[in-house]
Amino acid sequence: MISLDTFFFILASGILLGGLYALMATGLAVVWTTLGVFNFAHGTFVALGAYVAWQVTQSIGGGAGFLLAAALSVIVMFGIGFVLHYVLVKPFERNTNLVLLAVITTLAAASIIENGILIGWGPRDKQITPPIEGSVGFFGASINLYDIVILLVALLTLLALALFLRRTSLGRAMRAAAQNREAAELMGLNVSMLFAITIGLSAATAALAGVFTGSLRFISPTFGADPLMKALVVVILGGVARFTSPIYAAFIVGIAESFSAYFLGLYWAPAVLFAMMIAVLLIKPEGLFGHRSKTL
């Protein structure tokens, strides 16, 4: 058996991972439920967000530099996501094969972004310097202060996103466009623009996740593949019935990953996650939380 402080250390790192995964998966789920499209470029959004932030921290150091980097990265990625809707999805939005065509265009976009990063920043690993140091005790385990900040910021971002979608007029319009396109058009809403904002927001949350991940681990051009797979597992595990479903699932995945990495080894951890996911799909294909209809 393991000691209590090890247990809490694993738990805490699992929760931190869960926070990051929630940030990544929510963006993916929002695009899926709104446009009915699975965005395979989502992982590279995370990577690109991290690289943009790294570039800024190279010129401006310190905490202010980090904040500026994060803000810039989020804004830039919002813009890129917004534009990509018009390039990758809108041209064939009336095609009956939309799902399949979007798979190939987003895969191609992922390839372009990944190779673009390789050309722009080279293949060497990079890391963003974390702005906060120090740690606090937690049931005998020592937890980095920065990790707690990340978790809080991630959760606050998701809360803000949820409130935006539920309470503001623009957010409600976005949900309306997601649920019934024709009816939304008949209410005078500019559906294309709303969809573009959706992808933009999803890319922005991905960028934030990228900034945080990039300050915890090394980043490399192919670094997007892992977040994409994790977000995919989370989305399937939790389903997309509610805005919160992938968030719960993200924490389950994060904790399960930490524990299986500790007990079974690094190589087996992903296998455990995928097996978990397939098991869920066999028993409850609509995900652990809720029914199969899509919503926002």
Binding site: A108, I112, I119
Partner: peptide, 9 residues
């Protein structure tokens, strides 16, 4: 890869 991806899109 970029050229091929652009061509595909």
């Amino acid at each position: 890869s970029i050229i091929i991806a652009l061509l595909i899109i």
